[in-house]
Structure formats: C-alpha cells, structure tokens
Design a protein around this nucleic acid. Structure first.
Lengths: 224, 224
DNA sequence: CTCTGTCAAGAGCAGTGCTCTCGATATGCG
DNA sequence: CGCATATCGAGAGCACTGCTCTTGACAGAG
C-alpha cells in the first residue's frame, strides 16, 4: 500500500523527467522536475539517491522501450520473410529514435562524463540486437547465408565472440556483415538525429530504406 | 602587438579548455578554466562572449584537426592506390578519434542541448568527407566504379545532391555505397568510443580494418 | 495510545554561467 | 611628449544547480 504510493511517485518523477529531457536535453535539472511536480527539490532524493540514478532509470527505460519496439515490429512480420524482418528491425530503430530523439541521444550519444552506466543496463541494451541475432540464426538454419573464407584469424576470433552471443550457428562471414549493417544502421540514425546529414541529405527516409535494403542483400538475406 | 597578446590569450584559453575537456568531458566549466589560467572568471568573457562561443571555437578546431589528419594520411598514399587511400582515410578518422575522444564526442556525439552549431563550422566539417569524394572522383575517372540501375527516383535525387558536393562524376550507385561506408565508419568509431561495443568486441582494431576493407570492395574500389 | 519509520519542507553549502562596475594600463593621436 | 581612448583584469553580485542535513508532520504497527 505504502509501496504503491512510492511506485506511483517514482513513475511520476520519471514521466516529468522524460518531458524535461524532451525539451531541455540531457542536462536534466532535478529542481525543475521537482518544481513541475509541485514538490521541493530535496523530496526527489527520497526516490532517487542522485541525479545519476534518475538518469540510469531513464536509460534503462529507454533501452527497454527501444527493445520492445524492435521486438514488436519484427514479431509482426511473417517468420519466413527474413529480409522483411530485417527491414522491420531497422525501421523500428529509426522510427523510435525519431520519436524519442533525446532518449536516443541518452543511450547512443556521447556518454555523460563522469557517469559510468551500471552493468544492469546490459541486458536491456542487448534486447534489440538479440532480435537481429534471431533473424540471422533463422537465415543460417535455412542455409541462405554464405561464409567469408578470407577472414584473418584475429578478426575471426572476435566475430566468433560476437556471434556466440546472438547467432551461434551463423557463419562468421555473415556475422561480420551483419555487424557492419548494425553499425551502419545506428550510424545513419545518429547522423540524421545529430545533424550530420544537414547540407547533404534533405529527406533521409528513402535513402535510409534503400541503404538498409542493400545491407539485407549484402548480408545474404534472400531478396523476396 | 596588443592583438598578438590577445591571440596568445585566446589560444591559451583554448588549450586549457581542451585539457579540461579531456578530463571532465563536455560539461566545460569556465570558472575552472579561469582558475587554471590564474585569472578571474569574468576575464574569460573578454575573449569569448559566452561558454557556447568557446565550445564553438573548440568544435571548429576539432573539425579542422580531424580534417587535417585525414588529408595528411590520404595524401601520403600513392595516388593510384585507391583502396589504400580509402583505408588511410578510415584509419585516420579512427586514430584521431581514439587520440582525442572528447573532441570527437564534441563534434560527432549528441549535440549540446540548446546549442546550435553556427553555419561557419560547415566548411571545416566538410574537409574530411571531401577527401573521400576525391578518391571516389579519381575512381570514377579510371572507370572502376559501377552504377546501380535499380535506384528509386527519390533516392537517386538525394544521392545526386550528395554526390554533387563531393564527387559529381561518380555514378550514383557508387555514391550511395560510399555514403553507406562513411556512415558505417563513423558508426563504428562512435560505437567503440561510446562503449557500445563492450561485451561484444574486445579488440576492435582488426575488426575495424576488416570491415573497412570489405567496404572498399563493396564500393567498387579495386582490390590491389 | 505510543512508538517507529517514512515523508516533505526548508536552510544551507559549494559550485555554475553571466553581468556590471571600477580602477589600472597600454595604445594611438595631436 | 601628453592626453583621450580603448582594452583589460578584478571583484561583487544574481539566479541557478546538485546535494546534505535537520526539523516537524503523519501513517501504520504493536
């Protein structure tokens, strides 16, 4: 009972903090949140030991929101349509990022100095890439992925580590190409959101879609 | 004479600010810089109208430093070795970023909220990508680049805009693939620097080199 | 009914960006 | 050379920040 009030208060703080995040960016002011909540600043410390802990909670929520979006979008696609599932993942990431730019910046932008993400954010952060791993794994089971024989030993070792986590049965060459696509996906979204595409690409949407389709083919996913 | 003292003071402020940037991250404290300089905080305002203007100066310097590194690295490679020039660019970007992580975060990380980069940073920001454009242009002149006939009209239009700035004679398909490589390059560096590769890739160097070699081949640069 | 634990409020500390005023000092002009 | 002017650093001060500590009110348990 008392615990439920506490949970409601915690949620309300996070909601208002998210709203401030959307308007004022990453430099979140505890006092401003407290003002909006009609409460004195020190009261916030009853629920979050420090501003960094509030940020950590928001980061965790952001990772889970993104992961949930990706899971939902990919889950709505026919299991046999591997390229469609891949594209659903890519667009889910971009759409979520465009809808929540500051939360995206919070988790994929420059890390807050002096702030080290606690290790309990790792599982939440892994949710999205796990979905890609499942697509890769399904593609490997169907046998459409080809390998790359010319992998240097150290590269192969690293890719094996990467693949072991998300797609243990995919050929290493495909893991490498998928890693490149993953990096390109977030590189594109970051460029678009952080203004690096200004004076270059006016309407990024179609370009993004085309790039990701090309990546699907490059990974080796069948073109429907 | 008076002007030279002023220039020296301005430089000294930027040097100390860069040092603070390297230790404390992006939340640069004017007062701390003033303390290190043995001067009262308000004196800084004689040289920079605001903290944002100091940041802008640092951003401009960072863009130019990165651009200079890229130009130097690419310039040291035999003109005929197109893939070598491409790889030199990629490694120059990553090496500079690893050597100056906070300055990299300043220009390619999440933008400071409420801060809009003035338009005079654009030419400096363009220096690096211009070098890639020159490689692409040389490759087009030699005739090694192939096009992609299946470009949707809107994508082709955007790629034409991109290509017009840096490599007007390269086929649009190659421009698109190069754009993808560029995005992947910075995506990789950002992932590595911002800790997104933790728990996945231990030694990113060889993986990076392999990915960029694959990109060179994907763009269509000749494999030596 | 008392005791205990939880809560918000308020004061206060050290730090921040920024503005303003006030002397000191150097520069350029007559 | 002498003076007016422009530039400079120092200092005080404002409004704000995260955070700590103490104080007093209140609800639930025994």
């Amino acid at each position: 009972m008392r615990a439920r009030l506490r949970a409601e208060m915690t949620d309300e703080i996070k909601v208002i903090a998210r709203r401030h995040l959307a308007t004022d960016g990453a430099n979140l002011s505890l006092r401003a949140v407290a003002r909006d909540l009609g409460v004195v600043s020190s009261a916030i410390y009853r629920y979050f030991p420090s501003r960094d802990d509030l940020l950590t909670a928001l980061i965790l929520d952001a990772y889970n929101a993104l992961g949930g979006s990706v899971e939902a979008a990919e889950g709505a696609v026919d299991r046999a349509d591997l390229t469609g599932r891949f594209l659903a993942i890519c667009h889910a990431v971009r759409d979520w990022a465009l809808a929540n730019p500051h939360e995206y910046a919070l988790i994929y932008g420059s890390p807050v100095p002096g702030y080290a993400a606690p290790s309990d954010t790792v599982p939440a952060a892994t949710r999205a890439v796990t979905v890609l791993g499942a697509v890769l794994e399904d593609a490997a089971r169907v046998g459409v992925l080809h390998d790359d024989e010319r992998l240097p030993a150290d590269v192969a070792a690293e890719l094996a580590r990467v693949g072991a986590g998300v797609a243990p049965n995919a050929p290493l060459g495909a893991v490498g190409r998928a890693l490149g696509s993953w990096v390109q996906l977030f590189g594109f979204v970051s460029f678009e959101l952080f203004g690096q595409l200004n004076n270059a690409v006016d309407v990024p949407g179609p370009v993004f879609d085309h790039q990701m389709r090309a990546q699907a083919a490059y990974i080796g996913l069948p073109t429907p």
